[in-house]
Design a protein around this nucleic acid. Structure first.
Length: 815
DNA sequence: AGCACGCCGACT
DNA sequence: GTCGGCGTGCTC
């Protein structure tokens, strides 16, 4: 066993072979971090994936420099998980490594310069920059590349360094610095040897001439005697404001007071009271029993609980059982904003045993969670998808809440994976139980449940016997024909809103389109405002008074006249949420109407402020995008209106109907949570559309029957497996050619009907990159693995063409 | 990925 | 003539 396969934090295929030096042989193990040289002098933190004895044939391996960990930092379950991820999602282990580890745990060496020993520098022949650098190096032996920017213009740095290296005056050195530093907090105490009456009186009399110091001393003494076990923070002494650090320093100098430091967590943990959870209702108890039974049979559970049925209660019970067995639980949520409420609920019960992990933590905070998980200091972790990679020691339960949510598989970050599916696999390696929970499960999960791959548990009653909301479809076409409309609202819809307001209740209006108008168009010449980076029309945002591209974020001012023909007849087309908000405000001038979308929630605490406003019932109507479907659990919302429901269906995506159903159902769940008299109004031109009809009768089985039938008919998942390959490049010609080539290679290995495209992407150019797509529709089951092998072969063949190496490629498995 | 090497246009 | 642009090649 003299060689190790090492993963490097680079987007490179596969792993690299290094030789293990004799002295490291006894201690090296898979899952440990090591320092390895890679390409010249550069040093990376690699990860040992495998130890073996196969001598490489085509190259001479280099040696591992040193081992960074005493014990493997990555448990063996995680190593298996990574292997599965890279095979299933066709991504490199390096990508996973980069994604999984906080950057402080995978440091790269930094390049330093130093003078060569015993050189005589001939200053006469140096230019100014070279002279500066030599002089700087004479003062401080090592200089970091970024420090050089302070005295040499950026453009000339490389030239200067290269010329000094040629002259053999300086050389390059690589150093790895530990970046993570524990946070230290200063504490104070009275010097112990003076802690007796005699000495204390003496000190106080000595301090008579310095009253401030005396007061400070007395304050410390006071705090210390009051609770001798407590630690006194230095910072709290100055809160009163009468003392400065000078007074404190004087006391320290006189040796009366001691200052000391303790390492402190960056993550605040809950210190309040610990609360018990409420008892389960009858139907919850039944559901819980089914979950228990499934776990006994080693089956994973799909918990389908209608809105406010109390899925969380069941989660809590299972978590409790899990940690009572001495195991850890992982609670996954699709996004950070949702972690807050569940955290509030859990920390009352579990206090310090609870941790969180998500994209908003700083790097050092992530390292601290890593260490705590590694040392088993945290029993329950609440997190987003990246929490799957924490080094759990004995994971016993994984909960994936809102399992249908598309945030579990964002398209734009690599490695591309669906956290819901990955959670199932990870739990498998740990032999942990899994609960996928949702009020609107994904069609895929429902299919698995029907195939008995998941145990289906249905919770159809709201907690406390509260009734489910009622649905009503409003035929907008009819309303228009009988002239019973005002703008985008039928008079009936307006009446219903008014009724709700009159009863002092609140209403929610959903319109899932940002901005004020989709397009600003010139009536005279037809000009529309395109984004300069993308092939997309820019959306008009009235409140910010600008045009925005929703794909690259570019902003432009709104044209007053047509830039092409100077006509002033500019027409706004396509209704956005801002316009709906404006309309509602005009219809109900005496009501408080607020808007909730990413644009209005951008400011700090905007969300919190609006949340409080709604809670205090200062807000009467909330108009918003899909954002309002999540987390707004209030007691007095009785009406949900969707004035332009058709727009939810007209999206080019085979999941559009499923998404529409999920969004409508989720937002409906906000209504009548306490009264049981919630009402949902869906205004549409097509009240006969199957999706709307099925939502109205609210029959869960029939809805999924319908979705599954449609998917089967058009050969979409879960009946087939999809792989999307996207190619991007600045030059359209080049990607076009490349994608044609890749398409032909794929057709060589796969049946014709499996390969769709290549085609220009729906957004042909995004951020100045032209995109082409090839969609692979592969059969499920045994053949899938074979076909995927073929895809891999095709991709390798494609990569061998050097001209296509500059083309960016994304492979999205289970797209 | 990122860094070095190598080949062509815009400037002193 | 050079400087520096980026296309290409390679890393255990």
């Amino acid at each position: 066993m003299r060689y190790a396969q090492i993963i490097l934090p680079l987007n490179l295929k596969g792993s690299f072979t290094y030789r293990i030096p004799e002295e490291l042989m006894p201690s090296i193990q898979p899952g440990m971090r090591v320092l390895v040289p890679f390409r010249g002098k550069k040093i990376y933190t690699g990860l040992v994936f495998e130890i073996h004895d196969h001598e490489p044939e085509n190259f001479i391996p280099r040696e591992i420099i040193s081992i960074l960990d005493e014990f493997p930092i990555l448990p063996k379950e995680q190593i298996s998980f990574w292997n599965w991820l890279s095979e299933y999602y066709l991504c490199s282990p390096g990508e996973i490594y980069r994604f999984a580890f906080p950057s402080s745990l995978k440091l790269e060496s930094e390049t330093y310069l130093k003078l060569r020993p015993n050189v005589a520098v001939d200053f006469e022949n140096l230019d100014v920059n070279e002279m500066y650098l030599i002089q700087a190096l004479e003062v401080r032996q090592l200089i970091n590349l970024t420090d050089i920017e302070a005295f040499i213009p950026k453009k000339e740095i490389i030239k200067t360094i290269n010329s000094l290296i040629d002259l053999q005056y300086i050389e390059i050195d690589e150093k790895i610095a530990e970046k993570y530093k524990a946070r230290e907090v200063a504490y104070v105490k009275i010097n112990e040897k003076f802690l007796n009456n005699h000495d204390l009186t003496e000190i106080l009399s000595k301090l008579n001439k310095a009253p401030r110091q005396k007061d400070l001393f007395l304050l410390i003494l006071d705090k210390q005697t009051e609770t001798p076990s407590a630690y006194i923070k230095k910072s709290e002494l100055f809160e009163a404001g009468n003392f400065g650090s000078l007074h404190f320093k004087a006391l320290v100098d006189k040796n009366f007071v001691e200052e000391y430091y303790l390492q402190k967590d960056r993550l605040e943990s809950y210190e309040g009271e610990i609360e018990e959870i409420e008892e389960l209702s009858e139907s919850q108890k039944l559901a819980k029993k089914e979950v228990d039974k499934a776990f006994e049979d080693n089956k994973k559970v799909l918990l389908h609980g209608v809105t406010s049925s109390g899925k969380t209660h069941i989660y809590l019970e299972k978590i409790e059982e899990c940690i009572n067995e001495g195991k850890n639980a992982l609670f996954l949520l699709p996004e950070i904003s949702l972690t807050k409420q569940i955290t509030l609920r859990l920390e009352k019960k579990y206090g310090r045993q609870l941790g969180f992990y998500h994209q908003k933590l700083t790097d050092f905070e992530r390292v601290e969670v890593w260490r705590k998980i590694k040392n088993n200091d945290i029993q329950i972790l609440i997190g987003t998808r990246n929490a799957l990679f924490l080094p759990f020691q004995n994971l016993g339960l994984v909960i994936v809440d809102e399992e249908h949510d598309s945030a579990y598989k964002p398209r734009e970050v690599s490695p591309y994976f669906n956290a819901k599916d990955a959670a199932l696999v990870l739990a498998g390696f740990y032999k942990a139980g899994v609960i996928l929970g949702s009020a609107t499960p994904s069609v895929e999960s429902c299919y698995l449940a029907r195939k008995d791959k998941l145990k289906y548990v249905f919770l159809g009653e709201r907690f406390g016997d509260v009734k489910l909301p009622e649905y009503e479809l409003i035929n907008f076409k009819e309303a228009q024909e009988s002239k019973k409309v005002s703008g985008n609202f039928s008079l009936h819809l307006i009446d219903e809103i008014r009724k709700t307001l009159d009863e002092k209740n609140q209403a929610i209006i959903l319109h899932n389109r940002r901005g004020y108008a989709n397009v600003v168009e010139c009536e005279t010449c037809g000009y529309v405002n395109y984004c300069s980076n993308c092939d997309v029309v820019m959306t008009y945002h009235k409140s910010a008074n600008e045009m925005k591209c929703h794909y690259c974020g570019q902003r432009a001012s709104k044209p007053k006249t047509c830039p092409k023909c100077y006509s002033e007849n500019l027409n706004e087309r396509g209704v956005g949420v801002e316009q709906i908000h404006e309309e509602v405000s005009k219809i109900f001038p005496d009501s408080e109407v607020d808007r909730m979308d990413v644009d209005s929630m951008r400011k700090k605490f905007a969300y919190e402020k609006l949340y409080e406003k709604i809670e205090d019932r200062e807000t009467d109507i909330v108009v918003g995008t899909q954002m309002i479907s999540k987390g707004l659990d209030f007691d007095h919302i009785e009406l949900v209106a969707i004035p332009k429901a058709d727009s939810l269906l007209y999206v080019q995506d085979f999941r559009a109907e499923e998404r529409a159903y999920q969004l409508i159902t989720q937002v409906s769940g906000r209504a009548g949570r306490v009264s049981g008299k919630g009402k949902i109004l869906i205004q549409t031109y097509n009240p006969d559309h199957s999706v709307f009809q099925l939502i109205r009768i609210n029959n869960v089985t029939k809805i999924y029957d319908y979705f599954l039938k449609e998917r089967q008919k058009f050969h979409y998942p879960p009946f087939t497996k999809l792989i999307m390959i996207e190619l991007k490049h600045r030059k359209e010609e080049k990607v076009n050619r490349a994608s044609q080539f890749l398409g032909s290679v794929l057709r060589k290995y796969l049946p014709e009907e499996c390969v769709l495209g290549p085609e220009r992407a729906q957004i042909a150019r995004l951020n100045n990159l032209y995109q082409f797509q090839i969609l692979l529709k592969l059969p499920r089951g045994k053949n899938y693995e074979k076909f995927k092998e073929m895809v891999l072969i095709s991709l390798n063949e494609f990569e061998e063409i050097t001209a296509y190496q500059s083309i960016r490629k994304a492979v999205l498995v289970d797209f």
